[in-house]
Computed example of a mutant assay.
Amino acid sequence: MISPIVRAVQDADIAGAAAALVEVHATDGYPVEGVERPKEWIRSSAVAQAWVAEIDRRIVGHVAVMNSRGEDAVALWHARSASDEAHVGVLARLFVVREARGRAVGETLVRAAMDYARQRSMRLVLDVMTKDAAAIRLYERMGWLAIGRTTHRYGDGRQIAAVCYVSPAG
Rank of each mutant, 00 (worst) to 15 (best):
A113Y: 10
S44G: 11
D11I: 10
Q159A: 05
W41N: 06
E71L: 04
G16V: 07
A50P: 08
R7K: 15
V88T: 14
Q10G: 14
A117Y: 05
I147A: 00
A8M: 14
W41M: 03
E36A: 15
V6Q: 06
M122N: 05
R58P: 02
V32E: 10
D127M: 10
R37G: 01
G106V: 04
H25G: 13
L21E: 02
G34R: 12
W77P: 03
M129P: 09
A64T: 10
D84P: 07
R58N: 09
V97H: 06
T108D: 02
A161P: 15
V22Q: 10
A79S: 15
R37Q: 11
R120A: 06
F95L: 03
V96T: 12
A82D: 15
Y30E: 14
S121R: 11
F95K: 02
T108M: 07
G16W: 11
P168K: 12
E85I: 13
I5R: 15
L109I: 02
L138H: 03
R37T: 08
A20P: 09
V125I: 08
V47L: 09
S3H: 15
A75Y: 01
A92Q: 02
V52L: 04
L91P: 11
R37S: 07
Y30I: 12
T151C: 03
V9C: 11
I2Q: 15
G16R: 13
R58T: 09
D84I: 01
G143K: 03
V163P: 00
D72T: 13
V63N: 12
A169Q: 10
G155V: 00
R58H: 13
Q49P: 01
G70Q: 11
G143I: 01
V97S: 04
D156R: 04
E36I: 04
G157D: 02
A133Y: 03
L124C: 06
D72V: 11
L124E: 07
